[in-house]
Amino acid sequence: MLTLDRVTSGYDAVIVLRDLSLSVSGGEVLCLMGRNGAGKTTILRTIMGLVRPRSGQIRLDGRRLDTQPAHGIARAGIGYVPQGRRLFGDLSVAQNLTIGLMARDRPQRTRETVLQLFPRLRERLNQPARTLSGGEQQMLAIGRALCMEPKVLLLDEPSEGLQPSMIALIRDTIDALRRTGVATILVEQRVDTALAVADRIGFVAGGRIAECHPASDLGPDSEAFHRHVGV
């Protein structure tokens, strides 16, 4: 289980997250929604150690993460798919996957599992990542993170700018991960995707989780979406 306990963090003089607490268990999908600038991306970057928390604690299965460097957090079992994918564009598809596999004990088996999940990548293994289509790049970004065999996967707006068939593939992937016991924190702007894949939906406002509801209690017209997402 990943827990954030009263975490405060931000950039230079700007505080973005204020005493934020949340938790997500194995096999659970927590979707974070909120307006632009609410702090959703900062939550993920703080968990990854790319933004250092100023106070509070972050724990994975009881082990402190907030005291570790970013590379130690990744190796502890947190996989990250950032907004805009941020692939290593000059490296090939195979090399991007290799970067993800470096920390693992059984890289060949993990690589095969990822390529079975995204067969399109197998056809593009020697192609530079920057030459892939948007959908293929997102497959690679998710595949690269899965190569880390994460206990918790952080997905920052994975459906942004993708066609419906790709969005459906991403939903299926999240469902498949849920069945394998991977916890997922998904930052998402699309209400339909959030309702389709999330177990719980947390609404971020003012640097905190303002409300959190089981997805089954919400519908497309729920007041919470109007209040926090503006739809």
Binding site: M48, L50, A74, R86, D90, M102
Partner: peptide, 16 residues
Amino acid sequence: RATQEDRDMARAFGIN
């Protein structure tokens, strides 16, 4: 080469 392209992403993938 990965570090050269994106220092933060290299960190996020376990590279010291």
